[in-house]
Amino acid sequence: MAEKNIDEMSFLDHLEDLRWHLIRATAGIVIAGTIAAIFYKFVFDVIIFGPTRMDFPTYEGLCRVSEFLGINDTTFCADEFPFKIQNRTVAGQFSAHVWTSIYAGFIIAFPYVIYQLWSFISPGLKSTERKSSRGFLIIASLLFFIGVAFGYYIVTPLSINFLANYNISEQISNEFDVSSVIAIVRSSAIASGFVFELPIVIYFLTKIGLVTPDFLRKYRKYALVIVLILSAVITPPDIASQVIVAIPILILYQVSIYISAAVVRNQKRKLKNV
């Protein structure tokens, strides 16, 4: 499609432009997913099933902390988890391979996906707005990967450890389906990745006037309740895990207030200079 001035483009032209950006983003995910599919042994044995083994770094670290505090009766220091991973459907392993590769492709290609989104939005911004948002791609990608790492190394092992050792009867043995294990790893990592994008979301909402720092401060107590509910949803129902997850989210909320205040100050300064 021939490039046009943004002011000259019709609604259909914008849709066509969006379509090509979505195609490129999808192509990036497919390519990254194909690479993940080729190295499936590493993806599954090391990454996906890593939190199901007691030699996972999180468990070793929590075990040392427990020993330091004198807590001997802890599941973090066990030799192995009391469960087996099984496949219960004919196409289960094939489906797990395909869908895990797609999700892995999305995580790997996230900076490129964000770049395509930014390429579609940025022509509609003023030159000063584009300059002030120059670091958007780097910051958005960095926050996403930090969130994914937090979900993988904190939320996932806490969830698996709690659920694997939860027992309502000695007559029941845990034999988890492979899709269930993958779902915990996938949802914890990707959900945390998006949660960590909160400062970016607040930045743009402040830029367009939908959010102000006073609004964020006023409803901070309600945000605290929402954060606790969110942490309860993505973690097992024990207080320690919920607090561990809630702390970084609350920090992100406070950082978002500072970011919103900085945006408002810059806007007022520009109005004075006009």
Rank of each mutant, 00 (worst) to 15 (best):
S132F: 15
A191I: 14
Y253H: 11
L18V: 06
D55K: 02
S119M: 12
T212K: 09
G147S: 04
L252Q: 09
V181R: 01
M1E: 09
P157D: 00
I249W: 07
F194E: 02
R88E: 15
G70I: 07
K41E: 10
F42M: 07
L205E: 14
R265N: 13
K4W: 08
P82D: 00
I168A: 06
G50W: 04
T212D: 08
S101H: 07
D238S: 04
A96K: 10
I251C: 06
Y103Q: 08
K270S: 15
D7H: 15
K218L: 12
S10C: 08
I247S: 08
Y103E: 07
T58R: 02
E197M: 12
I121R: 12
F83S: 00
E67D: 05
P199N: 03
I47H: 01
T156E: 10
F94Q: 02
L205F: 15
Q267K: 13
I200K: 09
E3W: 14
T212P: 06
I146G: 04
V255L: 11
E197H: 12
F136D: 01
Q86Y: 15
A109T: 03
R134I: 13
Y40G: 12
P237V: 03
I202R: 06
S256F: 10
F194C: 01
A246L: 05
I31A: 07
A27W: 12
Y59M: 00
L125Y: 14
S241T: 09
D73C: 08
I146S: 04
V181K: 00
A96M: 13
D13C: 14
I85T: 04
G50N: 00
R130L: 13
I146N: 02
R53I: 01
G135N: 05
I184W: 05
F176V: 02
V233A: 09
V233F: 09
K131I: 09
F11Q: 10
K218P: 10
I172T: 11
L12S: 12
V43D: 02
Y103G: 05
